[in-house]
Computed example of a mutant assay.
Amino acid sequence: MTASTTIRPDQLPAPILGYLAAHMARDADAALRGFASTAVIVDDGTTYRGTDEIRRFLSKAGAEFSYTTDLVGAQRIDGAHWVVTNRLEGDFPGGVVDLRYRFAMDGDLIAELVIAP
């Protein structure tokens, strides 16, 4: 098992940085650019596969709430796996949550994203 390494956020791969910036700006099309056409996102127990399902997810994710997002941690697991921790604060139930965004890369594209507390 490979040990993770804490990194500065600017050391994340460009597609991950692009996704994070676009998602915070609620720009689904820009967020989608970093994903492979066969990518998978798992969030809140639901799996979204491929470009169309991921676009729908990105367009709706969190839209019913107002919240801020702060990147509070980043880790490199190995050359293809990265974890980003974001703290969300807003008017959703509980008001504050730290979410781990686990990315799996396939070359220069995101192949999988699992979002979980």
Rank of each mutant, 00 (worst) to 15 (best):
Y48K: 09
A104I: 12
D108L: 04
L99N: 07
D91E: 04
R49V: 01
G94V: 03
L109R: 15
Y101G: 00
T51A: 04
D44Y: 12
G45L: 06
G18T: 08
T51S: 07
G45C: 01
T85L: 10
G90F: 02
M1C: 12
F35N: 02
D29I: 02
V42W: 06
V42E: 14
D98Y: 06
L20D: 10
I115P: 02
L71H: 12
A61L: 06
A25H: 12
F103S: 01
R102E: 15
Y101T: 10
P15R: 12
Y67R: 07
I77R: 14
F103C: 07
A111L: 08
A28V: 04
G94W: 01
P93I: 09
V72G: 05
F65S: 03
L113P: 05
R56P: 04
H81V: 05
D44F: 04
R26C: 05
V97E: 08
M105I: 13
D27N: 13
D43G: 11
M24C: 14
H23A: 15
Y19L: 09
V96T: 11
T68V: 04
D43R: 08
P9N: 11
E53D: 10
G18V: 10
V96K: 07
D98S: 14
H23M: 13
F65T: 09
A25F: 06
G90P: 00
D52E: 11
R49C: 06
A28G: 07
D43V: 13
G95A: 08
V42Y: 03
M1L: 13
Y19K: 09
V84E: 06
D44L: 01
L17H: 04
T46N: 06
V97T: 11
L17E: 06
Y101F: 14
S4T: 11
P9C: 06
E89Y: 06
R26V: 11
F35C: 03
T85A: 14
D70N: 13
G73S: 12
G45K: 07
L88I: 14
A30N: 05
P13Y: 03
V96L: 12
H81C: 11
T51D: 00
G45N: 07
T69P: 03
D78E: 05
R26M: 08
N86M: 12
I41H: 04
T68S: 08
F57G: 06
V97L: 13
G34I: 15
L99A: 09
Q75P: 04
P93C: 10
R55C: 00
T5S: 03
A74Q: 12
D52Q: 05
G62C: 03
D78Q: 02
T2N: 11
I16F: 05
L20G: 05
Y48S: 01
Y19H: 15
V83Q: 08
A80S: 13
G34N: 02
A21N: 09
A39Y: 00
A63H: 09
I7G: 02
M24W: 15
G50Q: 08
M1E: 00
V96E: 03
L109N: 11
R76N: 00
G50L: 04
L109Q: 15
D10E: 09
F35V: 08
M24D: 15
A14H: 14
